[in-house]
Design a protein around this nucleic acid. Sequence first.
DNA 1: GGCGTCCATGCCTTGACAGTTATATACGTT
DNA 2: AACGTATATAACTGTCAAGGCATGGACGCC
Lengths: 109, 109
Amino acid sequence: MVATFEVLAEESRRRILDALVEEERGVGELVEILALSQPSISKHLKVLRDAGLVEARIDAQRRIYRVRPDPLREIDEWLAPYRRRWAEHLNALERHLEIMDGNEEEAWT
Amino acid sequence: MVATFEVLAEESRRRILDALVEEERGVGELVEILALSQPSISKHLKVLRDAGLVEARIDAQRRIYRVRPDPLREIDEWLAPYRRRWAEHLNALERHLEIMDGNEEEAWT
DNA sequence: GGCGTCCATGCCTTGACAGTTATATACGTT
DNA sequence: AACGTATATAACTGTCAAGGCATGGACGCC
């Protein structure tokens, strides 16, 4: 998972995934969509491949890429403890809205 | 969300969040848990604060930090289209296991 | 077989960021 | 008031990675 987060930190790579989650595409299409140079796209695709986030099929000279979502499950699992906090937080917000009569809150930044 | 992914790309910061999701902690505790220098921890905490992922309460000289999970919801939402793919992928795997009789697959890397 | 297309890779430069050391700031204690 | 504690911040350095350019390699087509 270490790698997955680092890979997703790059906006261009998230945009590539967002483009590929719609449908599989060749490199040229991604170059047009992202408006980046072809080598840059290919480099990002290599990173995504190494992370297992995409896979490529060969069609003559073209490489057709598509999403491989499995590594994202780790991130989904990592989020689990924090999802519980969302619920708590909402509850706390509700209490806050119910009380809402004084500054019995501590100073939170 | 751009910022959130970049912030989470750093392993030390994810470890800080994992420590804080259990319970709120002072900076000194985090220094011990992560085995990093105090300035390094404080710097990470600043990044996390700026991203809205933690908040600090003042207790004398101490700053007690706790998690603020809200920004993580954006990531959770970003994952949505890919979760649908997990289901598809599982279905595809099932079909694969059912068929399992020949190499009618294309060459996927 | 030569040429154009499509993509990957190597090299280079530049910018960003993590970590350390040193210092500043705020607070409590005696 | 002096000192120790707890945290933030500044300055510096090393590292790493993104993006551009140039090149290489595979394939189809004429």
